[in-house]
Computed example of a mutant assay.
Amino acid sequence: MPSPADQTASGSGAPLAHRLGRLDPYWWLVAPLLIVTIGLFLVPLFNILLLSVTDPEPGLQNYERLATASAPMRVFMTTLRICAVTTVIAIVLGYCVAYAMAHLEGLHQRLLLVAVLIPLWVSVLVRAFSWLVLLRDQGPVNDWLIGAGLIDEPLKLVRNELGVVIGMVHYLIPYAVLPIYAVMRGLDNRLLFASRSLGASPATTFFRVYLPLTLPGVFAAMVIVFVFGLGFYVTPAVLGGGRVVMLAESVSVAILQTVRWGYGAAQSVVLLVLTLILIGIMGRTVGLKRGFG
């Protein structure tokens, strides 16, 4: 039996050194990583937060400008609109690809999985310039449409929001496919067989059984795609041609060109808070583990 002194020492009032001594020794293996994480991530993050309320002078004037000025609000609304459209398109296409992957077997499934993963290995800059070449006025896409008699003059497919959405969807589809595919692979097919055996049509089985069971993966993919879209910089800069300014590019302009460090830091903080809110909503609703299968 432990003595009362030992019980007191092990309680909440025990000295810090004693409590640290009782930690699992494996925690000491990750201690260097935690120190590096704090030094390289949390400290700079705190400096950004501090900079947003101290430059050019102490106060909340940077955040006030973000909330009241027309230009920042226009950039913010453009970012949300493009991210929303990109998310919807990527989720619809990603669901179709994930459905095919989940129901194929053998070589066909592996080939489709490789086709989904290959874009992840190509630089975003290379992909952006590739789309710029394909979608320009004298590019292959417009040449094919004119040659097929579908249009009489080239379409404006780049240097606008349409080009930005096309490039972002192409980049983000793998991030939509993988969470949905992970959830689909974990479904119990006996539920589908039971639905069919009870007389439900294939369409009814899909919409009443299969789709609801895959919604956690869909919601996880939505959060991932939307959060990634919020921080896009290269694709809007290249395919937007300077006419489509999103939040990440606005931060770059504020810091590197107009040298308004506090204003750029405030935009970064808003972007970070919005990202954390979306992740928190996902964690509170479907859960991070369930959302990723």
Rank of each mutant, 00 (worst) to 15 (best):
E249C: 00
Y63A: 06
A14W: 11
V92G: 11
S201Q: 06
L111K: 10
V218S: 04
V177A: 01
P119K: 01
C96D: 13
G280L: 05
P174M: 07
V164L: 11
A100F: 11
L215A: 15
I180Y: 04
I277H: 02
L145E: 14
S10L: 09
G262V: 09
V245H: 04
V218K: 11
L51A: 12
E105V: 14
S250C: 04
R110P: 04
L33F: 15
V124F: 07
G167P: 02
G149Y: 02
A9Y: 02
H103E: 13
L45C: 08
P140C: 14
R243C: 00
G106T: 03
V75E: 00
R185K: 15
Q61Y: 07
I35L: 15
H18F: 11
Q138N: 11
L191S: 01
A84Y: 03
V30Y: 15
Q267C: 14
N189I: 10
A128V: 13
W121A: 03
S130K: 00
L117Q: 05
T285N: 00
T86Q: 07
V114C: 09
V53N: 03
L49Y: 12
I91W: 07
R65M: 07
T214N: 08
V75M: 01
I38C: 13
P202L: 01
R22K: 12
N160C: 02
S268R: 01
T285C: 01
A203G: 08
V270M: 06
P179N: 05
V218T: 06
Y26N: 14
R284Y: 09
S3V: 11
L34H: 05
A221I: 01
